[in-house]
Design a protein around this nucleic acid. Structure first.
Lengths: 253, 253
DNA sequence: CGCCGGGTTGATTAACGTCAAGAGGCGTGG
DNA sequence: CCACGCCTCTTGACGTTAATCAACCCGGCG
């Protein structure tokens, strides 16, 4: 089904296989030419405010993306897992720090080179970059809605469902989801406290919607039920009912 | 100076004036060739979920950008004012509905044409598009932090300061800011209720930080004080202190 | 075995939402 | 031009949610 967050391998191979595009004109091609670097847990890949000199593809492991506010609060902006690409839409400095949650293997390419190749090559790479930017934008706006409109329970349900979708798990079946990050990471991501996250986890467990297997694994018993709780704010299920707030344009339809 | 939200006129003229770039290879050039359309208050410019066929430049007036959740809640994602450009980073369907708050004049160009010109022209337009996308991303991430981490008072202070910056007003002086949108729009934008927004406005007024001139104008007496309240979360003032959470990587550098 | 850090649970408090009533603009119609 | 009514905004009383404060648990490691 090709979820918007999934690994780049597979679906794009046909192009290269047919010889229509030399491999350096796709994102995957550019990345695969780079050596893999490794980071230990807690190590930063880049810092907020640094010049965004590189674009990163996580091969394996999990990164947390965050900013520190002047008073010390930490806002986690997102997490990046194996197979995902990071920081495509940066034109100025990095907007957040990226730090390894687990040991991480990743590849990076220089943004300068990527731009050059995009400018001189046929449209494939440009298209891929635009797609990635749109994904990043979609994710950001999804988070805006979660943080602005949803209750604690809805936020956690959303987080769990999103994590499940990201692995490509099929709905309706129980799925085991790895959550390598700490409760504090989750709390800072969802705009809650660690205690509230715990309590919601416990509540969902009592209600039989999830089971906790150790600290870093959750089994979702039926994504559908969780989706209800999540306010059905599934990543991409627009509720574009054409009902403007003001009466002027509302009468037809 | 060139605040990230400012009107495109002025600073980019030199290029065209020197004849270095034909006018159709800049965003301003493309837009200025289009006729201005007008929308009445409450009228939608485009709808969430529609194919994002056009990029829009608001000439005059104010748009609100929002999504409706399945249960009817409304999340306002942002506002667009005269001189600003809208929807550059859409590669799939529009992620929100854009609706006129006031009477609006705007120009639009087809995305298809914009992409074509960007692909065939020199780098100027491509650069401008990337800049706009980065701006949109910065704005989204700023909102994520406001919604995820800040208190009601901090959110409102932030909103007021951001509105002031957007007009290009210089700090330290009292500034009159136009807020054409309703209290409900502000509430849905800040993830608060209308009553809470009112109460914070009243509190700031009691404290002498602002004065309310009618429903749609606020006078900020000293942006500096408001910035304190705002958690000093100024649009771009990264607090990139290199203090990782884990000790492992902290020692070098 | 005991310590330590992260996680969980409980009691209390503070912040914000909800419900309800009243005030103030603004357009319309007399 | 004024009066009325409507809609938005404002303010107050009360309820709910999530934060805070605090204790305890549990698994990993020295």
């Amino acid at each position: 089904m090709y979820s918007s967050h999934l690994a780049p391998s597979g679906h794009h191979v046909p192009f290269a296989a047919l010889g229509l595009t030399p491999k350096t004109t796709t994102l995957e091609g550019l990345f695969s030419a780079q050596p893999a670097e490794t980071f230990t847990a807690g190590q930063a890949v880049f810092w907020e405010g640094d010049a965004s000199t590189h674009v990163v593809q996580v091969v394996e492991g999990c990164l947390r993306l965050y900013r520190i506010l002047p008073d010390g609060r930490r806002a986690v902006i997102g997490f990046t897992f194996g197979g995902e690409v990071l920081g495509v839409s940066f034109q100025g400095p990095y907007l957040y720090t990226a730090e390894a949650v687990t040991p991480v293997r990743l590849r990076r390419i220089s943004r300068k080179r990527m731009i050059e190749v995009a400018a001189t090559s046929s449209g494939t790479l440009r298209q891929q970059l635009m797609d990635k930017m749109y994904e990043e934008m979609s994710a950001a706006q999804h988070l805006i809605i979660v943080l602005g409109q949803l209750s604690a329970e809805e936020r956690v349900a959303n987080f769990l469902v999103a994590a499940a979708q990201r692995t490509g798990a099929d709905r309706r079946k129980p799925v085991a989801v790895e959550l390598p990050m700490s409760r504090l990471d989750i709390a800072d991501y969802l705009g809650l406290t660690i205690e509230t996250v715990c309590r919601v986890f416990s509540k969902l467990k009592r209600e039989g919607l999830i089971a906790l297997e150790g600290r870093h694994q959750v089994i979702l018993r039926g994504i559908a039920a969780l989706l209800d709780l999540a306010g059905e704010m599934d990543e991409d299920r627009p509720c574009g009912i054409r009902v403007p707030a003001r009466p002027e344009a509302a009468l037809p339809n």
